[in-house]
C-alpha cells in the first residue's frame, strides 16, 4: 500500500517549477501499471481531481495541493478510511468533467486556470456535498500530517512558520514564574 506515485522530495523552487507543467507534474516518479498509477482513482479521475484541488489550494510562492501530495492523500484514503465516499467522488468528478465539456468543449484538466476556477465555483454552488467533501479532504491533505501522503515534506507547516522537525526538550529549562495576583 506504500504510495505507487511517490515523487522524489522536491525543494520549494522545484515544486513551483513542476507546477508550470500542470498535469504533467503528476507523472513525476510514477510507475505505470495496467490499472493506472493510483490505488483508487483512474488516471483521468486523478487529473480532474488535481484541477479541482489546485483551485482550492493553488500554487503561489508555496506549492499547490497536488504538488504537496494531496492527491496521494485522497487516493489512499479512498482505499481506506474514506471508502464510503467513493460514489460521491466518482459521480462528482464525472459531473465536473461534463460541466467543463459543456462550457468549454474540453476536459477540466485541459481547461485554462480561469476556466477551471469557473467550474470549481459552479461546483461549490451546484454540487455542494461533493465540493464540501473535496474541500475538506484537500485541506486535510495539505495541512495535516505528512505521514498520510499529503503535506509532502511538511511544506504547509513550513509555510506557516512552524519548526519542522519541532524543537524538543527546551521546556525544562524555562523556570519563569507567571504573575499570580
Amino acid at each position: 500500500m506504500q504510495s505507487k506515485n511517490k515523487a522524489v522530495a522536491l525543494t520549494r523552487r522545484q515544486f513551483v517549477a513542476a507546477g508550470v507543467l500542470g498535469g504533467a507534474a503528476l507523472a513525476v516518479g510514477c510507475k505505470s501499471g495496467n490499472q493506472g498509477n493510483w490505488d483508487f482513482l483512474s488516471d483521468g479521475q486523478a487529473r480532474t481531481l488535481a484541477a479541482i484541488c489546485d483551485q482550492i489550494v493553488p500554487a503561489d510562492e508555496f506549492p499547490s495541493a497536488s504538488q504537496a501530495g494531496v492527491l496521494t492523500y485522497i487516493d489512499r484514503q479512498l482505499f481506506r478510511h474514506y471508502r464510503r465516499h467513493r460514489d460521491v467522488y466518482r459521480e462528482g468528478l464525472e459531473h465536473a468533467n461534463e460541466l467543463s465539456r459543456k462550457r468549454f468543449a474540453k476536459d477540466l484538466a485541459e481547461a485554462t486556470p480561469a476556466q477551471q476556477l469557473e467550474i470549481v465555483s459552479a461546483l461549490e454552488k451546484e454540487e455542494r456535498p461533493f465540493f464540501d467533501l473535496v474541500r475538506r479532504h484537500t485541506m486535510e491533505g495539505y495541512y495535516g500530517s505528512p505521514r498520510h501522503g499529503g503535506n509532502r515534506d511538511a511544506v504547509s507547516w513550513r509555510m506557516l512558520g512552524l519548526d519542522e522537525p519541532p524543537v524538543r526538550g527546551r521546556a525544562q529549562y524555562d523556570m519563569r514564574k507567571g504573575a499570580t495576583s
Binding site: Q55, I56, V57, P58, D60, F62, L117, E124, R135, T138, M139, E140, Y143, G144, S156, W157, L160, L162
Partner: peptide, 20 residues
Amino acid sequence: PIHMIDRLPENTPSWGPGHK
C-alpha cells in the same frame, strides 16, 4: 494548522488563494 482552516477572520474566502 488543521484546527485553523475554518477559524479565519469573517469574510475570508473558504478556499483559493485568499484562504491560503
